[in-house]
């Protein structure tokens, strides 16, 4: 279990060291007006939405599922909140808007759960529906415009500071909450049981449908919070581009963190590491002065490398003949 996290951890350390070599001040932290700034803080802040979505994704993947719709759901959350706020500057409107958005996200999660657990549709396809239609819905809400708002309360979510950026605090809070809930209640164990052996779990009386439903709702709510962060950070809702491809980043974070797409044992710490690796990678590409778009190449290399290291078949490549026989 522990050594599973070794490779991601090494990758992260290597990336951070690379940054340190290129930018010696990378690890430096400074306080200004009671706000903490620095390279590491930036990594955390920019990585917060991915981390949030990856947390939800971890549980979904642990049940042998996948949720492609989270990016679209994030866009919907931002759109709904910004449209609700409109020109208002009051905090209560902002909170009402966010509440409406998150409830809506929960409903979208229920919808995904219904397709997967209720109708038994393959998760990739079931969530592809909302991935495609969701952006259309977000644009419907914003009527195709980029909706800008000017609301101090809303701005706090993505751009505010309480010593650390609020978005970091929210992401860590959710991480702590998930860790607490899954380990303190039986949710984590039942999720893993369903993911490892669905039939044995059914015969042991596990309500797998409820479990699956729960994780999709949770993933959608996480996506909603991430969507609020993204939109709040720029005080605008961009239905087209908010959270674009974030589902892929999240899936990568989960896989890099050592949770298998085949379901079963998952690691929240691994997901945290995975999300950090992806964000640090992006930052590193910036700092070493390559065009930011080229990050994708490095992402691809990291994914394949990590997957190969973890693939049992790559490890067993030497004793391949024996495996094939038995």
């Amino acid at each position: 279990m522990k050594n599973k996290l070794l490779w991601p951890l090494l990758a992260l350390v290597a990336l951070l060291l690379l940054n340190l070599i290129v930018t010696p001040s990378f690890f430096a932290l400074r306080m200004q007006d009671g706000h903490l700034y620095g390279g590491l803080v930036d990594v955390l802040k920019n990585g917060a939405p991915t981390l949030l979505i990856a947390l939800g994704m971890t549980l979904v993947i642990a049940t042998r599922g996948i949720d492609l719709s989270v990016g679209a759901v994030a866009a919907i959350a931002g759109a709904v909140t910004c449209v609700h706020i409109g020109t208002s500057g009051s905090a209560s409107t902002a909170f009402a808007g966010m509440a409406i958005a998150l409830v809506l996200c929960a409903v979208l999660g229920l919808w995904n759960g219904f397709l997967v657990a209720g109708l038994g549709i393959q998760p990739i396809i079931a969530t592809l529906v909302l991935m495609t239609a969701g952006r259309g819905v977000a644009m419907l809400v914003t009527e195709g415009q980029i909706v800008t708002v000017n609301n101090t309360a809303y701005r706090q979510v993505g751009a505010g500071f309480v010593v650390l950026p609020v978005s970091i605090l929210i992401a860590l809070l959710v991480l702590g909450l998930v860790a607490f809930v899954t380990r303190r209640t039986a949710l984590g164990m039942l999720i893993e049981a369903v993911g490892v052996n669905p039939e044995a779990s059914r015969l042991a009386g596990v309500r797998s449908r409820t479990i699956i439903w729960t994780v999709y709702v949770f993933a959608a709510v996480c996506a909603g919070i991430a969507g609020l962060m993204i939109s709040s950070n720029v005080s605008a809702a961009d239905a087209n581009n908010a959270g674009l491809w974030i589902e892929m980043d999240a899936i990568l974070a989960v896989v890099i963190g050592g949770t298998s797409l085949a379901g079963g044992r998952y690691s929240l710490t691994g997901t945290l590491l995975g999300a950090l690796i992806i964000q640090t990678l992006t930052t590193t590409v910036y700092t070493i002065g390559v065009a930011p778009e080229v990050t994708l190449v490095f992402k691809a290399i990291v994914v394949i490398a990590v997957c190969l290291v973890q693939a049992p078949k790559a490890r067993a490549a030497l004793s391949f003949r024996k495996v094939a026989v038995s």
Binding site: M248, I251, L261, E293, L296, V297, F298, A300, I301, C307
Partner: peptide, 17 residues
């Protein structure tokens, strides 16, 4: 899914390269 996702990133990144 994962392999072609990596391929997707790789090809897109190569464009920008």
């Amino acid at each position: 899914f994962i392999v072609t996702l990596a391929g997707m990133f790789l090809a897109r990144g190569l464009c920008f390269l």
